[in-house]
Simulated scan of single mutants.
Amino acid sequence: MGGSAHASYAVGTILCAGGLAGYVRTQSKPSLYAGVGLGSLMVVSGMVIQSGDDFRGHTLALIASGLVVGGTLPRAIKTQKVVPTAIALQGLVSGVYQGRKVWEWL
């Protein structure tokens, strides 16, 4: 397995756990759906990378990272709270990494 799949697995696991935690703590269904949905998408991208299709896997992870940033950055800016800011930052870092990996395969 390429080491680059680990990043997708890690981010996916964090997003799923965060979505579940948000739901348990505040009964927030959007947190549950977004966290588990986007986290699952990241895990799937790791599986695609692991199967040897690096370009498609990293592209999928880049899209998921963009959705994370797009969904949390406005809230992070508006509320200036730690959790949305951390999620947006995680998505941004993941997006930069995944974008670089996609660029390698172009």
Rank of each mutant, 00 (worst) to 15 (best):
G52E: 06
Y33N: 00
R75C: 03
S94N: 14
Y23F: 13
A10I: 14
A88D: 08
I14L: 14
T13L: 15
R25W: 05
S4V: 09
G19N: 07
P84T: 14
V44S: 03
R56S: 07
A61S: 15
H58W: 13
Y97T: 12
S51L: 01
S45A: 15
Q98F: 15
A7M: 13
G12P: 08
I87A: 14
G57M: 01
V83F: 04
A21F: 06
D53Q: 04
A17K: 02
V96W: 07
M47Y: 04
T13V: 10
L38D: 00
G57W: 00
K29Y: 12
G95N: 10
R25V: 05
I77M: 12
V24H: 09
L15W: 04
Q80K: 14
V48Q: 05
M47A: 08
P84F: 13
G37H: 00
I77Y: 07
T59K: 04
A34C: 02
L32T: 00
H6E: 11
G39R: 04
I87D: 02
G2H: 12
K29I: 14
G91Q: 04
D54R: 05
T26Q: 11
G18C: 02
W103Q: 13
H58Q: 14
F55N: 12
T72V: 01
R56P: 02
S28I: 02
R75N: 10
M1G: 15
A17C: 12
G71K: 06
G46K: 08
Q80A: 10
Y33F: 03
A5C: 13
Y23R: 02
G95C: 11
V43L: 06
I14A: 15
V11Q: 03
E104W: 05
G66H: 05
A88I: 06
S40Q: 01
G3C: 10
S94W: 05
S40K: 01
V43K: 00
G3T: 08
S28G: 12
P74W: 11
V24C: 11
S45P: 15
G91L: 02
S51H: 04
D54K: 07
Y23W: 09
W103C: 07
Y9E: 13
V69A: 06
P84W: 01
G66T: 04
G3H: 11
L106M: 13
G39H: 09
L38E: 01
T13H: 03
G57P: 01
Y33W: 03
G57Q: 00
V69K: 08
M1A: 14
L67Q: 03
Q90C: 05
V68I: 14
I49S: 05
T13Q: 14
L92C: 15
E104S: 13
T85Q: 08
G71M: 06
V102A: 09
K29L: 13
L106H: 13
A17F: 10
S31G: 09
P30R: 06
A76P: 13
I77P: 02
V48G: 12
S8V: 00
P74K: 12
S51R: 04
P30W: 03
S65N: 10
